[in-house]
Design a protein around this nucleic acid. Structure first.
Lengths: 342, 342
DNA sequence: TTGTAGGCGTTATCAG
DNA sequence: CTGATAACGCCTACAA
């Protein structure tokens, strides 16, 4: 069928094993024969068969990416494209391919992962969306198959290499930014408490308030899905309060966009009546009306580092467990304003 | 190392080939031995090695997705996540994995594709972003390796299975919609003319105008990248005209968002002063201010059908070339208004 | 219905 | 520095 190592060997008058060595650029082959073999490869249009190579070398040079359920809203979030871009670029630089797996239900995804791992389809795995009680993480940990998580594992922190932001600090800073602007009544709108990101950002918010001597008002904390629809629901509840907040910490840009929309419907002006700071700093934050002040978490880097460290781990089993923290910074735009009590 | 077909064979007291047949659920094996073998597999925790299976059967059950350059703006477009979602779901249903390949430059991407194909890494390939003079398409065509394109090939239309919208019609309808609202001065803002989508949408726009007896004003046609930044550049040129348009056909939602932003800066009100209809109907169209009237092209389906038809083609080489057209429909929101001349 | 043996295209381990 | 030869784990005639 297609041209194999044997054909090349024959044409170059060497043994197949020699050709193999030339492919690997082994230093123990004379430049002369190398050239001879390369010419033969060229002439025949030879390309190594990756599958055969994988089988023999027991490594695929493929990274597996576990995606949120295909019906999942997370998919729609620009966050996703951004990590993917980082992962993709990093993998490509190191000559690794990226393979993704999905499923509709959690259990389906779990099975896909098991198949990937046991079936030796990939050399390592990247986990997105760290949440409480993650079975996949536990499984991976039990098989000690190379993997990294983007975000922060809920358990076994010191046994899992992960790439994350310091979300506690980030949320704290975001909240402090609002406090600096003289806001006292600051609400928090976040996604599901099953997600570790939500937990961390809520924590940071809480810490900032405490330090400012403000006790957390439980009516000011709302959890919705990380989707704009969620943000919209949340807002009406807040506005009904007898003492509505003057500022909002929103855990995701897309949600913030929904909030903005809803506020507009209610005739609430941003930032005049209400200030908003959100997270992620995705593309459209500067396109919204008003442009959103958002915490840039450098999503691309999250992906880039994740792939990079996974590959490290694959190629060097003794690589220590690492916790990589990607820096963040508040990007000020026009959704916040100093509060004046009159 | 890990448990193989031989271990199972031994435990079940059968030959390895029998185990192989049980895996393939061959009808020529008695239910009795099947059960016996399955029990053994269960007991040993056996999982077939995909790599070995691929090598022997000469098929990988992997689809290759060729992505735009990793630095490319297209990556940022929600369009991308949406096709991916469709591809992913479809592939998963048929038990195929999805593998992506990137590169920064066109040539790098080309090489990745050749490697994928010659290296037998994948069983078929999905091409995104059809443009003029696509070398990858030509290469694939020359090797008659299974592939489908999402969008419309520029050449060899009848030799390439592709999944597309009727973009000419869609653009025509979008323009007619504006004409119905009494607009006469309608401008077109599109992406690069290298992209077939742009060509088609421009064509549809032109047809609609002609039919309405309006001759195309070349100053009304502007091409920019499919990114919001592009949209913003475009707008200032238009507003400088002595007879600025009263309506805009914008070839992409993200661009339209940029346009909206720019218009806002210039104090132009939408839809009062200017009507806008755009394409794709991605998530944020309903979140913008004002919500955008957009042509829904059912992006998910584009992806879903692409994967589905590629798999068909892989599993049945005699499958005819197909042209699959995904329907579209205008979703009316608040960015268009009837034009009154006074 | 089941077993035997060879092959898929490489890499790896020995020799030499 | 290079050549045999045996894996890698599974599939598939062919034989029984």
């Amino acid at each position: 069928m297609s041209v194999t190592i044997k054909d090349v060997a024959k044409l170059a008058n060497v043994a197949p094993s020699t050709v193999s060595r030339v492919i690997a650029d082994s230093p123990r082959i004379s430049e002369q024969t190398k050239q001879k073999v390369r010419d033969a490869m060229e002439e025949l249009g030879y390309y190594p068969n990756f599958i055969a190579r994988s089988l023999a070398s027991r490594s695929t040079h493929v990274l597996g990416l576990v995606m949120p359920g295909s019906a999942d809203v997370v998919f729609q979030n620009p966050f996703f494209s951004n990590v993917l871009q980082g992962l993709s670029e990093s993998a490509h630089e190191k000559k690794y391919a990226l393979q993704m797996t999905t499923g509709k239900k959690e259990s389906e995804i779990y099975n896909s992962v098991v198949e990937m791992v046991q079936g030796r389809r990939v050399d390592g795995i990247i986990l997105l969306n760290s949440h409480i009680n993650d079975k996949i993480m536990k499984y991976l940990l039990s098989t000690d198959f190379p993997f990294v998580v983007i975000g922060k594992p809920y358990e076994n922190l010191d046994q899992i290499t992960h790439v994350d932001n310091d979300n506690i600090l980030a949320a704290r800073e975001a909240t402090e930014y609002l406090l600096t602007l003289n806001h006292k009544k600051i609400a928090f709108i976040g996604g599901s408490l099953n997600l570790v990101v939500t937990i961390d950002r809520l924590l940071g918010y809480d810490i900032a308030l405490r330090q400012a001597g403000i006790t957390l008002n439980s009516q000011y904390v709302i959890h919705e899905e990380f989707l704009q629809e969620g943000g919209r629901e949340a807002i009406s509840e807040l506005l009904k309060l007898s003492e509505p907040p003057t500022a909002l910490v929103v855990a995701d840009d897309l949600m913030a966009l929904g909030v903005l929309k809803k506020l507009d419907e209610y005739g609430v002006l941003v930032p005049k009546d209400l200030s908003i700071v959100s997270f992620n700093n995705v593309l459209f934050t500067e396109m919204s009306k008003p442009p959103l002040t958002s915490v840039d978490i450098n999503i691309f880097d999250l992906g880039y580092e994740a792939a990079k460290n996974l590959i490290r781990k694959i190629e060097n089993p003794d690589e220590p467990i690492r916790r990589i923290i990607i820096p963040h910074q508040i990007v000020e735009r026009s959704s916040c304003k100093e509060y004046r009590s009159n």
